[in-house]
Design a binder for these strands. Sequence first.
DNA 1: TTTCATGTAACTATCATTGTTACAAATAGG
DNA 2: CCTATTTGTAACAATGATAGTTACATGAAA
Lengths: 139, 139
Amino acid sequence: MKRSSKLSIALHVLGHMAVKPDEPFTSEQMASFAATNPVVIRRTLGQLREAGLVTSGRGKSGGWKLARAPESISIADVYRGLDERLYVGNKGGDENPAHCAIEIGLAGAIQGGLERAEVAFQSAIEGTSLADLAAALQR
Amino acid sequence: MKRSSKLSIALHVLGHMAVKPDEPFTSEQMASFAATNPVVIRRTLGQLREAGLVTSGRGKSGGWKLARAPESISIADVYRGLDERLYVGNKGGDENPAHCAIEIGLAGAIQGGLERAEVAFQSAIEGTSLADLAAALQR
DNA sequence: TTTCATGTAACTATCATTGTTACAAATAGG
DNA sequence: CCTATTTGTAACAATGATAGTTACATGAAA
């Protein structure tokens, strides 16, 4: 995982939301959960809203809620919703024309390995849900 | 793979070295192979020397050579020699005391997934050797 | 209509990586 | 011994990605 902390932030606040799935949380509340800034929360959860995992409302009694039951949202769903990848695509993916034959074979071998790693990662985190995270809090 | 390009650079120049395993290459030659700077090459191959994959000599007729036969050096060896990881450890690995129970369970789940991904990645690239890369050049 | 919260743009701050310059140290060869 | 060459490494600048911050328009509820 690159050095992004979006996934950690998102899962942390979603874990809190999962404890009280019907109560709206403001970005300010959640920012203090994750020790960050409200705008960072809105940006991050905004992506998850597009992915259909949360809903948001404006104005008084607005805020954020889970779109589905916590049991039905896996860590992997969140990971995919944030469009995270284990690796960042080679920045010259299309630009670098690969002058050298070595680069071709190389790219293929590495790429294949990364794809397998991605699959292994996602299936490993598929088994944990937001409800599992929330359960840790209630003990 | 984070956004480091060390691995690509290293494998590219090692591929060239594998074509003529007994001939020393200077960092300047290799810098032009990989379109980078001689110092970057020395830094990168320096790590691989510590890992026992290459040797270096100073002064006239100095330069770099593979320490073993190209067939016996896999892409995975190089990856490990560079101490690369699919993920960078959470920068607060020891610092952040993890205030919240959610963070604990979370870290465990993610960490487990990353370890599996790492294993999958390495075993996928274990099968390609420097000789395989060099072979691409000779056709 | 007032209050509160999101949505978003714009900018700054940090940090990791890469590139560059400079130079000491070592080695081969005359 | 002297010189040319090459590594080894420090120090610093350039670049780019990510996160944090400020500011404000927009929308909704009471």
